[in-house]
Every structure is written in structure tokens, then in C-alpha cells.
Design a protein around this nucleic acid. Structure first.
Lengths: 200, 200
DNA sequence: AACATATCTTGACAGTGTCAAGAATTGACC
DNA sequence: GGTCAATTCTTGACACTGTCAAGATATGTT
């Protein structure tokens, strides 16, 4: 009969395991609940093993956030694929998709834009570019929507894309922070935002 | 010659002093830098003296935030006073004022809408009502602007005010979180937001 | 003067992130 | 295989955090 083997000294892919476990913990109980020691326990490793794969706690958070932005980028690509319908509807699905993403993984989205990441320490360069790609993608699309005539071309596309993003971001944040107490009005708010941002 | 008196056992108005010192510390270095022990040192009092005036750290933060919402409320009243000009311009000054307030005391604004306050623990009842009054004020004004004809009356005033708030909030947040790296484009973004939200 | 109450202090505890030093494992080169 | 260096992981320790319990000190009331 086989005894349960002691865990091998070298964890197979500790970096990956830490990242996954940390994301789960963040999504379940928020950033505040993520302690490096609990994380190490969950993965079955010593308190400081983490420091051979991440510079410090912030570095770990940056890695999680970078993956968040990567999925957001994929989501945008999917919602904005030109073969999925008329541009008005594509914008609508994009808005609903963005807010859905932001409010479903609320804790992750909060972390993605948390002050801890972007100001307290300097974020990873990898993270910076990933996030910037996301916004560039949106600006492209705004130009396209202006060309399609569904968005007003009175505005500088850069400014208009910033305002668009701000609206979605603010909507998601107010929801996630618990300022709006229920989730029922979210779709109606999105629809109103869409109507405001598009030409009548 | 008068010796420097030892500090009196009873601090005159410790609650007030703690509140002020804490706000200063938050505004200077952010929430993360606010430790109850440093705060106590700054005020010249023991570590735990605070607990006779606030239930815990969160309670202290709630009190700071409540005062923040109070000044925001006053700011709105001032910007929206009917005798200060035509409604279009009043809306513009309101927007610029809001974003100015949010980005000037960036750390305070962040705290006002931080997850720590609104979700992690239940916020003070006093805070809840103060914040709600702020939003109610905005909704009143949106109705007024719709009546004045500068905002579209196609939308439910409740939804439209939520979208308006979201836009300003998102704009301020993205700025404060350091996603927009410089402060120069802020006014242009505000102007664009104003144009988007108002009838042409 | 005596007592109750509000206020403040010291001591302690469990928890945190992180550094230093050492042990265990792996891989490369001879 | 044997030797050496590098990578990976562990234990011990440190300063720091928020908060509780118990005691000291001042104020207010009767």
C-alpha cells in the first residue's frame, strides 16, 4: 500500500499555482483578505517561497492584474468583431459586456484599477503596456464608430474614447463599491449610457 | 520662567483633533499610510486613546468620509445656485467643480468611494444618508436641466443622473488612480463629457 | 467627601510583509 | 560519476499593524 508521498521539494510550477490561488482568493474575499501567508498555506509551501517568483506582494498583484487586462482585451476583441452585426448593436454588446465583466469579477476589476497598483508602487512595465493596449483598442473603435456615423464626429476621438471609458468605468465602480445597492438597475443604466453616447 | 507644561491628561477635543490629523495624513500619503499608531503619535496621545471616540479604524474612516461628502454637498449647492447664470454654464461649472474637487483631494475622494468603506464593513448610517443626499441633489438638478431643455428628456431622470454621475466619477477615478498619467488633458475631457451629456 | 463615569495609558496578542542565513535539490561541466 | 554553482525552498527573526483587557487618572454628580 502506497504511503502518501511527501510533497516534492521543488514545486512543479509554483509561479502559476500562486497566481491561480491568489486570483481565486481575491475574487472570493477581496484584496484585503489576501495574505501571503495564507496563500502559501493554500498552495502548501513556505511563507517566503513566493519571493523567488515575485519581487514582492505588489509584483504578484501586478501579475494578476495583467492577466485581468489580457482577458478584458480578448473580451473587447470578441465583442467588436466586425462580423457580429451592425455597429450600433456591436457597441451595445460591448458596453454590456464590459460592465458585465467588471461587475462579475468585481474584486478583480477593483484590483485592476486600484490605487495600490497604479500609484503606490510603480506598476510592472508588462502591465502598463497590456493596459495601454486595451485603451488603444477602444480608441480605434471610437474612430470607427465615428466613421460609421453612430457617434458624433464633433469630438476629438481621443477625448470621446476617454469619456466613453470613463462612463463605463464609473458605472462599474459605483456598482462594485456598493454605492448602488442592488444589481437590478444595471442594465437600464447601461442602456441609458449607450443612448447618451450614441447619436440619436 | 514658565516650564513647558506637561500635556493635560484630558485632551480638549480629541475626536476633532484625530479627525483633522487623520484627514491630513490621508490627503498627504493616502489611506495605506494611515496607521492608528502614527496618528496617535502625531496627536500626542496613546495608541488606544482613539477607541474612546471611534469604534474602530473603519469608524474613523467613515467619519472622515462623511465630512468629505458634506463638503461635496456644499460644493454642489454653490455651483448650482440659480442666480449664478444660465443653466448650461451652471452645468459646466458643476462638472468642472466636481472633477476639480475629486482630483484635488485625490486621496480623500478615493477613500470616499473605497471598497473598504462601502463593502468591507457596513458604513455608518450617518455616512449613508449624507452620501445619499448628495446623489439626490444631483437627481433634482437633472430633472431641472431636462425641464430647461439642455438635457434630453428621452431618458428616465433617475437613469440619466446615474449616468451623469458615473461619467464624472469614472473620469475622476481614472485620473486619480494614475491611469491618465498627466493632469493636462483633464479639462478637455470634462468639456467633452459636458458636450456629450447635454443637448447639442 | 464619596462614588460613578469618562478618558487615557501600559501590556499583550495574533496577524502582516519582508529580510538574512542556511538546507535541499537541480543542472552543467569535467 | 564527481564537483561546483545556481536555483528553489525553509526556518528564524524583525518591525509593524489593529485591537483587546486591565489599570490609572481626571471630571462630574450627589
Amino acid at each position: 500500500m502506497a504511503k502518501t508521498l511527501p510533497p516534492p521539494y521543488h514545486h512543479g510550477d509554483l509561479r502559476r499555482s500562486l497566481l491561480d490561488a491568489a486570483r481565486v482568493m481575491v475574487c472570493e474575499d477581496g484584496i484585503e483578505a489576501l495574505s501571503l501567508r495564507k496563500l502559501a498555506d493554500a498552495v502548501g509551501v513556505s511563507r517566503t517561497a513566493l519571493y523567488h517568483h515575485f519581487q514582492d506582494k505588489n509584483d504578484l498583484l501586478c501579475a494578476i492584474v495583467a492577466e485581468g487586462f489580457a482577458t478584458l482585451h480578448r473580451l473587447m476583441d470578441a465583442a467588436l468583431a466586425p462580423e457580429t452585426g451592425a455597429s450600433r448593436e456591436r457597441f451595445a454588446t460591448f458596453v454590456h459586456g464590459y460592465v458585465h465583466f467588471a461587475t462579475q469579477d468585481a474584486e478583480l476589476y477593483d484590483l485592476m484599477f486600484s490605487r495600490t497598483i497604479w500609484k503606490q508602487h510603480t506598476p510592472n512595465d508588462a502591465l502598463r503596456t497590456t493596459a495601454r493596449d486595451c485603451f488603444r483598442r477602444l480608441r480605434e473603435m471610437v474612430k470607427q464608430w465615428q466613421a460609421d456615423g453612430i457617434m458624433s464626429d464633433r469630438f476629438d476621438p481621443k477625448r470621446l474614447s476617454q469619456v466613453t471609458w470613463s462612463t463605463l468605468h464609473g458605472l462599474s465602480r459605483l456598482q462594485n463599491d456598493g454605492v448602488y445597492k442592488d444589481q437590478s438597475g444595471l442594465k437600464a443604466m447601461c442602456d441609458c449610457a449607450i443612448a447618451v453616447l450614441l447619436n440619436p
